[in-house]
Each structure stands twice: as C-alpha cells, then as structure tokens.
C-alpha cells in the first residue's frame, strides 16, 4: 500500500515549517508519521505536500517549567514513558504513554503528532484534557496557546490554523496528595482505546476536594465526565461512592457515541462506566 503521490520537504526549524505550510496549499506536517501515514495509505488523507518536522531538535524532550513540565511536540511516547520528569510531575501521562500501541510504535510516534491527529481513540488527548494541559503553537502571526479541552474540535479535527505548528505541551504538576490513573480497553490488534478513562482525584482530610475525569474513545472528542466529577466532590471515595460516581458517566455521554464492527455505541457506553470505575479505583488508591 503506497500513499498517493506527494511532494516532500524537510523543515530545519519551526519558522521554516510555518513558511513551507504557508507556501504550499494543503500541505500537512509529518512528525513520526504513525498517525498520518496509515491514513494516507487508505486515501483518507491525501495532502499534496508533506512538511517533515521530524528532525527539529528544538521540538524534542521534556523540561521542567513553572508549575509543571513542558513536553516538546516531537517527544516520543517511549521517551515520555521513560521520563523521570514526567514521572515526578504527572506520572499518569507516563502510564498512558506506556499503553500506546506497541514498543515500535512508541519509538516513532510523537505526542504532538498524536494529539494533532485528534483521534478520540488515542490515549494522550484524554489524559492531557484531564490534566488541564495547554498546547503551545506557532504560526505566521506569532505564538498562542490552546487549552487541551479546546484542541480537538471534532473527529480527526483540531483547532490549529492551516499554517500553525504545535510546538510543545505545558502540563501542570499533579498536586501532591492527589491520585491519578489512566486505564483503557485496548483494541486487540491496533491497541487504540476502544474506551479510555483518566481520573485525577485530590483528597484532603479523607474527602475528595476535586476530581477531573475524562473519557476517550466513545465520542468524537475526549468527553469530560462532569456528572462523575460532581458525584465525587465531597465524597469519602469509598467503594460504594466510586460505584455510584462511575455509574453517573451515562449522563455525560449524551452525544453520539462512536460505533463500529468491533464495539457498538451501546457497548462503548457500557464499557465507559466499567473503565471509569477502574480509573477511579486506581486513582483513589494512589491519593493521599
């Protein structure tokens, strides 16, 4: 399976990438290629030009920043899974990175590529939304930031303008005393999340002071489970409280759940409460 004919340009810097995007109508960025190339083989995407940013060193790596960490857009899933800084500040992100695809996919796939692809079955958009991360982008007019929750605008659609480049992701530290977890029901062949659930629970004095719960894989974009969060606030995080909170996710999935030969909409909805419950259990056990 070949992609359709393309023109290939390798960008040496972010500025050059922005310029190449502006000069070539319909051009797309290529990072690790693990989301885009499969789409191109299936002719679901057919950009005339690929602008390869894969060698821009400035976009790679994890660094400490004010109140958290900054992850370069080209940082691979394997690097995130193995990063001490990620482990210290937002270990749930490392937990999710280690569940992406398989070892070879994690070696090539990048966090920026994955989130820009905006596939709701990807793991990191769900976790980054729960963490309240910020996506930093550069375009012809300069830099701007987009909240993770606003980044995916639909199935495989994101908030980037055509000539903008996602350069890094700022992730606030999970507060000490909070417990966070990501669990997923992996598709057995592709390892994409049929359902993925991220939960961050902050506990003080034995009760839950705040909760952030997001479900991926079910709707077109990561879905915040507001009803689950509301049920958890002030609760003692006992097993029965978690059971009741997880069951409330049904009320948060009123949109149009995805459905395919592997998992119907009804099945995804049922699995959402199962996996939210598991995420809550794991997060609660790590809190305090």
């Amino acid at each position: 399976m070949f992609p359709a004919q393309i023109t290939y340009r390798r960008a040496g810097s972010v500025a050059e990438a922005v310029q190449l995007l502006s000069d070539n109508e319909g051009a797309k960025l290529l990072a690790g290629g693990h989301s885009l190339l499969p789409l191109m083989k299936l002719r679901l995407a057919a950009p005339a030009t690929l602008v390869d940013i894969g060698r821009i060193e400035a976009l790679k790596g994890v660094s400490a920043s004010d109140g958290g960490i900054t992850i370069g857009a080209l940082t691979t899933h394997a690097e995130i899974a193995g990063s001490d800084l990620v482990q210290q500040h937002a270990s749930v992100l490392a937990e999710a990175a280690a569940l992406v695809g398989d070892p070879a996919v994690r070696n090539r796939g990048t966090i920026g590529g994955s989130v820009s692809h905006a596939d709701p079955a990807s793991d990191q958009p769900t976790v980054l939304t729960a963490l309240g991360a910020t996506f930093n982008v550069t375009g012809p007019g300069g830099d701007r930031s987009i909240a993770a929750a606003d980044f995916a605008t639909g199935l495989l659609e994101n908030a980037l303008e055509e000539n903008e480049v996602l350069t890094s992701i700022s992730v606030p530290s999970v507060p000490s005393g909070a417990g966070a977890a990501y669990v997923k029901f992996s598709h057995p062949a592709s390892r994409y999340a049929v359902v993925g659930a991220a939960a961050i629970l902050t506990v003080s004095g034995g009760t839950c002071s705040s909760a952030s719960v997001v479900v991926g894989g079910v709707e077109a974009t990561p879905a915040r489970a507001s009803s689950v969060e509301a049920a958890l606030a002030g609760s003692d995080l006992s097993d029965s409280a978690l059971d009741a909170a997880a069951a409330a996710v049904a009320g948060d999935l009123n949109g149009d759940p995805m459905s395919d030969v592997f998992a119907s909409a009804e099945y995804r909805r049922a699995m959402a409460s199962v996996y939210v419950r598991r995420a809550l259990g794991a997060a609660a056990s790590r809190a305090g």
């Binding site: 290529l30 290629g33 070892p103």
Partner: peptide, 13 residues
Amino acid sequence: GVSAKACTVLTVQ
C-alpha cells in the same frame, strides 16, 4: 538504534 515498523516510515524520512 530503536525498533521501528518499516511499513510506516517513508524512505525520505
């Protein structure tokens, strides 16, 4: 130095 699936990498990359 790391494993990769050669069906999902362009030669030019």
